[in-house]
């Protein structure tokens, strides 16, 4: 039956069969991504005992809101604010520096270019844990230990190699004619960079902002090593308050995690359009 139908339907209808399959797959993936998320939220409204006794995949019964009041009264907003500051500063610096570096690597011919590019790839391969001790030493020597400043260096540095690598790929796709035309108009390379390359790299920059923003927002190892006072800690360290040697309050931890992920979701909703618009918007302006 089905075969017959598929044969009968020619051209456009055939693709609509494909489209139907695509929609089914899309909905399936939606369930897969949504279910764990929903359970994270639901379980954050329960008591640990209820959660364990009734099972994790059970609606809150009764709904329990004290987790959230506990989290908020334990200085959550301070953690939150500090995370925003660190991530925002690191992200802006990182995007500027990596765009700077990606420009000559993608669009200029000079000696050692290939070597530098290979070096960038090699730096992507450095396991993060080998840098913990040297960076700790450096931070204490600079007198930056236990301050938010201490995090910015490692956050920027660790996002750099990958970001440069990605931006090089993005910048390579920008048509050369645009730049050459500008050069004839007497633009130098620095103006070129700011007026042509940077605006046209927006989709790449936006992707990197998302990728690294999330990574920095959730970063634990450096924050835990370089910061010790509760008044300087960032969000991922807030979990520690509810975790001990033998004690762990899972619902409260889930409520911290829920609260930490919400601003990311809102930001994503606000900025997701930028992802697709980049090139088109840039080209219209140019």
């Amino acid at each position: 039956m089905r075969d017959k139908k598929a044969k009968q339907a020619k051209g456009p209808k055939k693709t609509s069969v494909a489209w139907t399959i695509a929609i089914i797959l899309a909905l399936f993936w939606m369930i897969l991504t949504l279910v764990p998320f929903v359970f994270m939220i639901l379980n954050s409204f329960r008591k640990q005992f209820d959660m364990l006794q009734q099972g994790v995949f059970h609606l809150p019964d009764p709904w329990y809101f004290k987790n959230y009041t506990d989290v908020i009264s334990n200085g959550f907003f301070g953690y939150f604010l500090r995370s925003i500051i660190v991530v925002a500063v690191s992200l802006v610096l990182m995007l500027i520096i990596s765009a700077f570096a990606a420009y000559p690597l993608s669009r200029m011919n000079f000696k050692f270019r290939e070597l530098i590019y290979a070096g960038v790839v090699a730096m992507m391969s450095v396991p993060m844990h080998v840098t913990l001790i040297p960076i700790f030493k450096l931070t204490t020597d600079l007198g930056m230990y236990d301050s938010l400043k201490a995090l910015i260096g490692p956050y920027v540095a660790f996002a750099l190699p990958m970001s440069i690598f990605v931006l090089v790929a993005f910048m390579k796709t920008i048509p050369r004619e645009l730049e050459e035309a500008a050069e004839i108009d007497g633009c130098n390379r620095f103006r070129n960079f700011f007026t042509i390359i940077l605006p046209l790299s927006k989709p790449g920059l936006a992707t990197l902002a998302i990728y690294n923003g999330v990574a920095m927002w959730n970063e634990f190892a450096f924050a835990n090593t370089l910061i010790q006072s509760p008044s300087k800690k960032t969000l991922p360290l807030a979990l520690g308050q509810f975790k001990g040697e033998h004690a762990l309050d899972i619902p409260i931890i889930l409520s911290v995690l829920t609260l930490s992920v919400l601003p990311m979701i809102i930001l994503f909703i606000v900025f997701q359009d930028k992802l697709v618009k980049g090139m088109m918007a840039g080209a219209v302006k140019g």
């Binding site: 700790f136 835990n224 090593t225 006072s229 520690g240 975790k243």
Partner: peptide
């Protein structure tokens, strides 16, 4: 008085000791 997280405590100690702190 500094409260370290239990999960990473041993690592923290190694980092601090090897840096002379």
């Amino acid at each position: 008085q500094i409260h370290q997280q239990n999960d990473n405590y041993k690592q923290q100690l190694v980092v601090a000791m090897s840096s002379g702190k």
